[in-house]
């Protein structure tokens, strides 16, 4: 594992007077895959939004390779090399598949590089290649998730953040999405993933953080958390045996 790439120190985020994150600290090292697990409303998505600049922390520090990035606009964060693949896919429904992919590369100026990345995405997701001229809103849920992942990769990020990539997908598609996340990570990208499916998230990752009501209440390797009685009882339920 490389050195620390992304670090959050005592980050607090408020929605009005309500604190959604209380002094959250975590780090992601280069080449690592880190999962954030926890129940609905635990602050997982809020953490990603604070990193990508959609929300400004009211206290604490966010640093990227030692440089403070807390409070930067999403554009600045993306330029720094962090892509955020948001919850619920959020493809642009009336743009074509190709236009959605091009939006991912909006900040890039290397035409040739964009074209070759587009070809790579089509090779990786042939379904998207067949539907390049189709409006993204007409794709199935699984195809939209593939498009959202491909769009995030089009910015050539060094860290990619996935927010609930398996949400609302049929079981066979869930497996496909996790296989893609594993591939991406094997290609050397650093991954920070939020997942409600704790079993999959912990099996895939190197390390994980457990969030409860806006606080980090546990951390360790995926295997350690899988073995933790608290995690097993609260998040894995009857599935724990399958791990």
């Amino acid at each position: 594992m490389g050195c620390c790439m992304l670090r959050l120190e005592n980050v607090t985020v408020r929605y009005g007077r309500i604190a959604a994150l209380h002094e959250v600290s975590l780090e992601v090292r280069e080449g690592e895959m880190v999962s954030l697990i926890g129940a609905n409303g635990a602050g997982k998505s809020t953490t990603l939004k604070a990193i990508s600049g959609l929300l400004a922390p009211s206290a604490g520090r966010i640093t990227w390779e030692g440089r403070p990035i807390g409070g930067l606009a999403p554009r600045g964060i993306l330029k720094a090399g962090i892509a955020h693949c948001p919850e619920g896919r959020r493809v642009f429904p009336h743009l074509t598949v190709r236009e959605n992919l091009e939006m991912g590369a909006l900040l890039r100026r290397d035409r040739a590089g964009i074209a070759s990345d587009l070809d790579r995405m089509i090779a990786r997701f042939p379904r998207l290649g067949e539907r390049l001229r189709q409006a993204a809103g007409t794709l199935s849920g699984g195809e939209q998730q593939m498009l959202a992942i491909a769009r995030a990769l089009m910015s050539r990020p060094r860290l990619v953040m996935f927010d609930e990539p398996s949400l609302g997908l049929a079981p066979n598609l869930v497996q496909q999405v996790f296989a893609i996340v594993r591939e991406i990570r094997q290609e050397g990208l650093t991954v920070l993933m939020v997942e409600q499916n704790a079993l999959a998230a912990l099996t895939l990752c190197d390390r994980a953080y457990l969030l409860e009501t806006g606080r980090v209440v546990g951390t360790g390797t995926g295997a350690e958390l899988l073995a933790s009685p608290h995690v097993r009882a609260a998040y894995l339920g009857g599935h724990a045996a399958a791990a």
């Binding site: 959609l54 554009r75 993306l78 959020r90 642009f92 236009e99 939006m103 991912g104 909006l106 910015s155």
Partner: peptide, 19 residues
């Protein structure tokens, strides 16, 4: 394209780097 994307989903457009 950036204008149309903003029209459809401003928050996600900002994640793509749209001002």
């Amino acid at each position: 394209t950036a204008m149309r994307a903003t029209f459809q989903d401003p928050q996600t457009a900002s994640l793509m780097g749209v001002r």
